[in-house]
Design a binder for these strands. Sequence first.
DNA 1: AGCTGTGGCAGGGAGG
DNA 2: CCTCCCTGCCAC
Length: 778
Amino acid sequence: MTDAIIFGHSTDSKIVAVYQASETTVKIVRRIDGKTTTQERKFYPFLFLKDAALLKGFDKKFWEVKLAGSNYYQYLFIFRRWSDIRAALRKIADNLSAGHGDTTRDLSETEEVYVRLDPVFQFLMQTGMTLFKEMEFTELERMQLDIETFARSGFSNASRKEDRVILISLSDSSGWEYVIDGREKSEAEMLSELVNIIKERDPDVIEGHNIYNFDLPYLMRRSEMNGVKFRIGRDDLEPRVFTSRLSYAEREIEYSNVEIPGRQIIDTWLLVQSYDSTRRELESYGLKNAAKFFGFASKDRTYIDGSKISETWLKNPDLLVKYALDDVRETRLLSEYLSQTSFYLSQVLPFNYGQIPRTGSAVKIESLFVREYLRKKHSIPRPRAGRQTSGGYTDVFVRGVVGPIVHADVESLYPSIMITYKISPEGDALGVFQRTLKHLTKLRLDTKKQMRGEEDPAMKFKLDAMQSSLKILINSFYGYLGYSRGIFNDYSAADMVTETGQKILRQMIAQISSDGGRVLEVDTDGLYFVPPPECADEEAENKFVAGISHSLPQGINLSLDGRFRRMLSYKKKNYALLGYDGKVRIRGSALISRSMEKFGREFIHTAIEYMLHENVQGLHDLYVEYVRKIGRREIPLAKMVRTESIKESIDEYLSSVRANRRNRTASFEAAISAGINLRPGDRVSYYISGNDPTPRSFMSARLFDEDSPNQLEYNSNYYLRKLNEYAQRFLEFFSPEDFRKVFSSDEDMLFKISLDGVKMKSEDVSTAESKIEEEEDE
DNA sequence: AGCTGTGGCAGGGAGG
DNA sequence: CCTCCCTGCCAC
């Protein structure tokens, strides 16, 4: 009879289930194509919330699960007292070392991996079950507590309470300053004291801004140098560090992942980037900027320049302490605000709190599916090879400035389609996909309803965090279908969702047009249009949209999402809106992007604002002003800087260039000649030097040094050309003669240019799509 | 070590 | 000059 585990096979065989022993090396025996390999891996005890239901499923003496290509080794045990866990793990470890540990099966003929876990689970169940009587979950639906309990549970970890918060800050500028509760000590003493504080206060959660990349690795390094054991984990264990990658939208970030046994780490630097991956509003992800952005920076907050920290510590330590504590307070507010969704998700998903922000959305929902399959002891399919072939429908019908504007969109288009048309992956034999999707959707709607009726602002905030964490899950279902590594992927199902979406959008376009509206721009699930003249107010517009919605299939709801005075329609996915409140919002990378020089962004923003107001004179004056200021180098260098984020390290870049796989680029070359190191996800700021208006930018790029900007260094000829390139975006909004008048500098002319009669124009755009339709009509 | 999707635009470098 | 290809950024 075996005591535990093991499995394995195929060249990329993955570990499917592992139990973890305290300070114990676990032997993993794999047999691959007849050859046995033994690997020793050290595991630390990590605990996972919410797996009680899984444990509940292990009620037979012996069972076998068939898994494939999955890396779900996270399914584990739940205990409340550390001593119970230790006892359990010791017991397993004893069994292991007594030689009962390994069982392998040769799986070379199939791709499947088999797991046999019974006696271990038997033992763990006995311990775990008595501790968790109150969590008698039997159905997936009951994994979630009712909304009330769910929301009230809040942040239960002790470190959240004010009196238990440890404020620790440090600075790396000279490598020697430490501030701990405001007292000064030798570095070794400081480190030991830090370890003691953590041990004594025993926090569940440790938070920091960029704590993965800086604070923790740094403290570990200094401890090693000072001969201090950095035992800040439970059980006196030391943290473990390894390089890891995260991707937010198209950006990939490399960071040092740190695991502290028994504790959760929350890095607000990552949370801020995750927040921004959909909103794209932040200029930088630094603590100060982020705190200001979210409104967490207090008015009397202490600011100290990065380069002056050592000096301040020597001359005015109290000031530095104040500064450091302000840093910590801001971090805490950021975390309080941004980690709520992760916290709630940790109650739903089989991942722990610290893991949630580091996992992608597909992995999150897949874990729900797999959990249910394990519970039902049903086999799990393999990912299918292939590719999704279709996406959302996008089109633009009018270019120019028009108004008034109504924006209508379908609420949760893809989830609605999947529910309405019962679309689910073929591999999902148990129907978990539909069931989970429906359940989460209902839970979210209920939560939103409760939120609307809630008076207490704190409770309202919690409910909001909860519903948005559910939204994250719901919106991942469609993407998951087309995910190549998803074990329940189904490309034709994904195509069916998008194609149905396209059909519905076209139906809306046709309906709005035939009802007298003028459709300007559409994208995937929503459209901008000029309502028919008889829609004079918001009420009428709402009614009009409701009428369109009524013409759509049952289960698909169109609603009015926004009203605007005017719209500047440029290209697909690129437009600007003027709100009734006077606010201008610009969408699309072809118009404006954060990598663009600040002067360019300001120019385009103001220019668009003037065009939305049909202020031709203002537009002309603006252009003339920029020509003058750039020519005389009156704009500060900081505004001429481009900031790009990079996806490769310098080494990877150089070898790609050498292999002719990619071209040289300004950002990398600027960093290389300045001698700085880069890691994926870093942002590089540079400007163009010299006089040539059309330089090879990778040769003229210089890294921007914030502390000593060299004002006269920038290439004003180049930036004048850039200005004209930006102005070129507006070519289509005027007749050619008018455009020349508006975007020329008075200084070139004998007389001041007359802008009388210059008008903005709008025109119908004939896109490929509409051409096809025209041909069909003939 | 871990990774949701497609559609769309701009700009730069290289080569014809 | 033009075209191709790649990267980066963005909308949904």
